Amino acid sequence: MSSHSERNDARRGKNTRGPGRFPKRAEAPADDWLWGWHAVAAALANPRRAKPQRLLATADRAREIERRFGRLPALEVADNAQIAQRLPQGAVHQGVALKVEPLESAALEDFVAEPGAVLVMLDQVTDPQNVGAILRSAAAFGARGLILQDRHAPRLAGALAKAAVGAVDAIPTAQVVNLSRALESLAESGWRAVGLDGAAEASLEEALDGGPTVLVLGSEGEGLRRLVAEHCDVLAKIPMPGGFESLNVSAAAAVALYAATRARP
């Protein structure tokens, strides 16, 4: 039977295990690291990335990295437990983790308005898993970029990058101060904004015209904020004959991106 000194003392709110038996997990904010093979490999392959600060990999992953990217000074061979110690609890790292400077924000001027071009704008969508899944769909359907408000969006690392499966480095992301002003600037460049709103009269199919389109999606529950909605050229809904009131925002983004793909000339 374990002694009191070897148990977690919930009353005191601290761990009273003997020293050295279980190493303390290192403090590792989720926005400091990328993990998962696809996310890390995409970052290493991206010429827009700064040099890695640290790259932890199991022996097998280290050999794979060297085959694909050559010798990297930042590479350190570590076992799975050692890698896990550098990451947030429960991170599924697949034998590799990378600490690197964040990507620089894209500029709105980088997004050229061409027939069939699609951008995605997120209004206060803050869940990293949702944003990561939206980036993955954006990459799959050939979107030109993602636009986020810098104060109300998760950083493009950690669990978000893992969910995006490499799309963080495939899709340029612009982080802007004000979404309404961003929509004004994009409109001047020839973009047309289609906001998704479950209460809209027009269907998404009716709203899409095949021209350069910004798909604007709001947070679950609150939807688009008033000023953002007012800066959209049209509001549209995704018809749902099955009777469910709404889709998860990442699922709605995937449906909207597919619809926009079909509307391309």
Rank of each mutant, 00 (worst) to 15 (best):
S2D: 06
S3Y: 06
S5C: 10
R7C: 11
N8T: 13
R11W: 11
T16Y: 04
R17V: 05
P19Q: 00
P29G: 06
A30P: 14
L34Q: 03
W37C: 07
V40M: 04
A41Y: 14
A43W: 00
A45F: 04
R48G: 14
R49E: 09
A50F: 01
D60H: 12
D60K: 12
D60L: 10
D60A: 15
E64A: 15
F69Q: 08
L72A: 02
A74I: 14
E76I: 14
Q82Y: 05
I83N: 09
I83L: 09
A84T: 09
A84H: 08
L87G: 03
P88I: 10
P88S: 01
Q89K: 09
G90I: 01
G95N: 04
A97L: 09
A97V: 00
E101V: 06
L103K: 04
E109D: 15
E109V: 14
V112F: 05
V112L: 15
P115E: 10
G116E: 07
L119S: 03
Q124R: 13
D127Y: 09
Q129R: 10
Q129F: 11
R136T: 09
A138W: 07
F141K: 02
G145S: 12
I147D: 10
R151N: 13
L156Q: 15
G158R: 08
L160V: 08
G166Q: 05
A167Q: 01
V168R: 03
D169W: 04
A170C: 05
T173H: 12
V176H: 13
V177G: 06
V177R: 14
L179P: 05
L179Q: 12
L186C: 04
R192A: 12
A193Y: 00
L204Y: 00
A207M: 10
L208P: 13
T213S: 06
V216C: 14
V216F: 11
L217S: 02
E220A: 00
E222P: 05
G223C: 01
L227P: 04
V228F: 12
V228M: 11
A229M: 09
A229Y: 08
A229W: 01
E230P: 00
E230H: 11
V234F: 12
A236K: 01
P239G: 15
P241I: 15
F244V: 15
N248A: 02
S250R: 02
S250M: 00
A256V: 03
L257T: 04
R264Y: 00
